[in-house]
Every structure is written in C-alpha cells, then in structure tokens.
C-alpha cells in the first residue's frame, strides 16, 4: 500500500458516498445514469470473485464488500425506490456497444488464458469505459447538478491517483501491470474534458452546463 493508492481508494469511497448522499438527501436520481451503475456493478462483481478465495488484508476485503454492497444499493435506488425520478429517456447509451468489444478484447489480450484471469481483465477493460453512459447522459441533458459534478470529479480522480500508484510501484517494487495501466490511462483521459469543466466552472461556484 502507498499514499497514492490510499488516496485513490479514499477518492473512490468519497465518490460512492457523495452519490448515495445525493440520492438519499434529494430523494432523487435525476441526472444519474443507471446504466453506468450497472456497468460498475458488473466491474466489481467480475473483479471481486476472489473475495472469498484469496485474502489480501482486512482493508482490502472491507473495501471490496463496501464497493459491491453500495453499487447494488445504488441500482436498487435508481430502478426501484426512486424509479419515478429516473430519467431513462436521457440514459440511452447502448451499453452492448461497450460490453461486446470489451469482452472480446479480454479474450484476446490478457496475462493468462484462464477463466478468473480473463474475467479480471474484462473488469479492468470495462471499468475504463463504464462512465461513458453517465458522461453521455450529461451531454444529452446539457447540464449536471453540482453534487453530481463532485461525484464525477472524485470518481475520475481515483483512477488518476492509481496511475501515480503504478508509477510509484514500478520504481519502488518493480511491479508493473500493463493491462491495468493502459486501461487506467484510457479511463482517466475520458474524464479530461469533464475535469476541465469542473475546474473552470464548478470550482468558481457555477453549474456545469454544456452547450446542448
């Protein structure tokens, strides 16, 4: 564990808590993409299959349980409890255009052609594009609530911090995982234009409103 990875995990934790607070306080899921949350649930489920078979640390297990639990709770809030406020018309990204290529790539490019390894690789590739339905929805509605912007900023920062973690681990431990790094770079790049909007607008107290 290193400071970059710890900050990254805390940023990820903060993003999930911000999202849950937004939904619980406003009792609304307006502006939130249910499809992205379903993709994140798929990512966590695929990545944490070893939750019961390989024990890394208490911290690791607790975080995995928390991430899986909250993402399914978020899906419950979107599609059941606050279903009336779910904006399915704007949440229209075709996720099959993500799942199929990512699934194929996981078969072709992985560290080891073994089931658990391919599923893990699939979760890494899927996570890098899982935010697209959410960003697509914001571009369609033309705006994002400030609290949703904070959620996205924290979520985008988490993988950016992981990139620093991988640089640190490369020099400190000689650890290097090309698949995770490449997917992490793609994932962070997808947030860049949002980061620009966030820093130039939200930090000055304005709302994010894209030219629709």
């Amino acid at each position: 564990m290193n400071i970059f990875r710890l900050c990254g995990d805390m940023s990820h934790l903060a993003a999930i808590i911000i999202l849950l607070l937004k939904m619980w306080k406003t009792r609304s899921v307006a502006g939130i993409s249910g499809k992205s949350q379903i993709l994140f649930a798929t990512v966590f489920t695929a990545r944490y299959l070893d939750l019961f078979t390989s024990f890394i640390s208490i911290y690791n297990t607790c975080m995995k349980v928390f991430f899986i639990g909250t993402v399914y709770f978020t899906i419950y809030l979107i599609y059941m409890k606050f279903k009336a406020t779910y904006d399915s018309n704007h949440d229209s990204f075709r996720v099959e255009f993500l799942i199929v290529p990512v699934g194929g790539l996981a078969f072709l490019v992985n560290h080891e052609f073994a089931p658990l390894e391919i599923i893990w690789t699939f979760s890494i590739y899927l996570e890098s594009v899982a935010i697209l339905p959410q960003l697509f929805m914001i571009s369609k509605t033309g705006e994002a609530e400030t609290i949703t912007s904070h959620y996205l900023f924290a979520l985008g920062s988490y993988r950016a911090l992981y990139l620093c973690n991988w640089i640190y681990r490369y020099y400190a431990e000689g650890f290097f995982d090309l698949i995770a790094v490449v997917a992490g770079v793609v994932q962070t790049i997808l947030y860049c234009d949002f980061f620009y909007l966030y820093i130039t607008k939200v930090m000055k107290g304005k709302k994010i409103s894209l030219p629709a």
């Binding site: 070893d50 890394i56 690791n60 991430f67 893990w120 992981y162 995982d177």
Partner: peptide, 10 residues
C-alpha cells in the same frame, strides 16, 4: 510478476 501480487489492488 507473481499472480497474487498482480491482483492485490481494488
């Protein structure tokens, strides 16, 4: 890279 180490991240 040994296997466990590769998957020690969240």
């Amino acid at each position: 890279v040994e296997k466990v180490k590769r998957h020690d991240e969240l």
